[in-house]
Structure formats: structure tokens, C-alpha cells
Design a binder for these strands. Structure first.
Lengths: 144, 144
DNA sequence: ACCTATTACTTGTAAAATGCAAGTTATAAT
DNA sequence: ATTATAACTTGCATTTTACAAGTAATAGGT
């Protein structure tokens, strides 16, 4: 579950730097949130998120996330126009990062969605277990 | 420890979006890492980090981080040319975010600094307690 | 078969952010 | 008095982002 093609030139070997080079932009983590927490699976769903990502940026970010192995794509069996975007294990493993970022902002900024925050705060491990369980289940649903 | 001036227009109220709007760029978290984990306190130290931030970008990020209450500045008592950049409580509270990002990258990418990663993995809570304790101690050192 | 809608994009272009080199100001050291 | 250091700023080229519009491949309805 590690290693990469010999073409990745990082500014440094620091793991935080790696994270920041992959995820450090305005949109990537929001797309992952949409998949992980809202169950979004399609291009149009992402477009309808309240933050309002531009179509070309969305297409680019989905490409990057796939290239980094954080998401994968699958054709929709019931509609040939649709593409299903799905989190990989690597993508799911970002759940603790998202959680801590949510809790930090909720503690220090004026934010909404207090229901979600409450669940995370009351029992973080349980929250993470639930998110993971949902994902495992979905994996089972289509052979893999 | 919350609320902000009535001039903050966010794309959405989602706490993750707030985090991403404040921290979602290539440099902010690296500066915070330098302060939290390496004990860097001055402009020139940040410049010498291996990732190689440009001087104008560094100046801008320090301004933004201070504006968001994540860092504060203090004149160096022994050298009038120097400015000391210090983490606030809000900045310190990013420790869990940094930790999870480090652990994620260490698990899924080719990264270095395995000593740090090992300490985080073996006992995350202890690691965080140590980081916090160092910060508390520094606060004591200069009256506040 | 034909027409319209939907889905996932691409293209063009303006605006903003980033990166690099060089210059500036205030203080300190010699 | 001169030189060095620390923390910046400025100018400009390059890259990234944003917004509006357009396109190709299905799908659904008549």
C-alpha cells in the first residue's frame, strides 16, 4: 500500500509535505467530504455542492484524485452516461484528517452543521467506525 | 474562543470548508509544522525549510495566519531586527490535524522522517501531550 | 426514427495566485 | 563609519483558478 511511479518529484520527503502537495488546495478535501459524508457519487452531485466548484476545476481535481489513488471511477451499470466516483481505501483513510479539520474549525470559527460536529465530538472513534462500515458495505455491493 | 469580524464571507457554513479556506494551500500548514515540530520562530528559519518557500509568499502567509489568529508576533527582546512568530492556542489546536496528515501520508506515500512517524503511531495521545506541554512551557517563559 | 434532455466533460479567456530575482529599511556588529 | 543581517517589498513572468459557453455520448419519450 505504498510507493509510487518514479516520476514524483516532491519538494521534500516530509510526510506533511506529501499530504499538502496532494491535498493542499481549495477543493480536493471538499470533494472527498462529499463522497465520504454525503454519499455523492457523480459529477453533477459535486457540482451542486454549496461551495460552487467550477466545472473545469472539478474535472481536473477528479483526475488528480484518481491519479493519486484516492478515488476510482466505475461506469454506472444502469445509465451509460453516468460515471460513478468511489473512494478507495486510501481515500477512506482520510476520514481522521477530515474529522480533525472539522473539529478544529468548529472550535475556532463560526460554522454550521452542528449535528455532524456533535457526533464527531461525542465519540470520535465511533463516528469513524460508522463511516468505515458504510464504505465496507458499499465495497461488498458490487463484487469489489 | 469563536466568532469573527462581520467581514468573513465563506462559500459555505461547513466547518471543513472553513478549514480549507484558511489552511488549504501549499504553505500554511508547512509553516505551522515548522513552528510546532521544529521550534522555528523567525522569518529566516522558515525560509531555510527544505521546501523552499518564496520570500513574498512567506510574508503573505505569515500575515494571513496572524489575521486568522493562528500565530502572533512579538519583538525579539535581545535583537531589535528580529520578529518572533509564535503559535497561539488556536494554532496549537492544529496539532491533531497535522498528526493525522502525517500518518496518512506515511501510510500511503513514500516519505521520510520515520522517527517522527514512529512516535506518532506508537502513542498518538502521548505525542500530542508532549507537543502541547512544550507550548505551555514557552507561554510561561515570557509573562504570557 | 426523431427530438429533447441529461451527463460528463472541454475550450476560451480574464483574473488571481505563485515563483523568482532584485531592491529596500531598520537594527546590529566590527 | 562601514558592513552585515533580518524582515520584508517590488516588478514581472508563469501558473492556477474562475466564469461562461460549447460539445459528444448516451437516454428517454413520441
Amino acid at each position: 500500500m505504498k510507493g509510487q511511479k518514479p516520476g514524483v518529484k516532491r519538494r521534500s520527503g516530509c510526510p506533511l509535505n506529501a499530504s499538502v502537495e496532494i491535498l493542499g488546495d481549495r477543493w480536493s478535501l471538499l470533494i472527498i467530504r462529499d463522497m465520504m459524508l454525503r454519499g455523492y457519487r457523480s459529477y453533477n452531485q459535486f457540482l451542486q455542492s454549496p461551495e460552487g466548484i467550477a466545472t473545469n476545476i472539478l474535472a481536473d481535481r477528479l483526475r488528480q484524485l484518481e491519479k493519486h489513488g484516492i478515488i476510482r471511477t466505475a461506469p454506472d451499470p444502469s445509465d451509460g452516461r453516468k460515471v460513478r466516483y468511489l473512494l478507495t481505501r486510501k481515500g477512506m483513510d482520510l476520514a481522521p484528517v477530515l474529522t480533525e479539520m472539522v473539529l478544529w474549525a468548529a472550535a475556532h470559527e463560526e460554522t454550521g452543521n452542528q449535528a455532524l460536529v456533535q457526533r464527531m465530538r461525542e465519540d470520535k472513534d465511533r463516528f469513524l467506525a460508522e463511516v468505515r462500515q458504510r464504505w465496507e458495505k458499499e465495497q461488498g455491493e458490487h463484487s469489489r
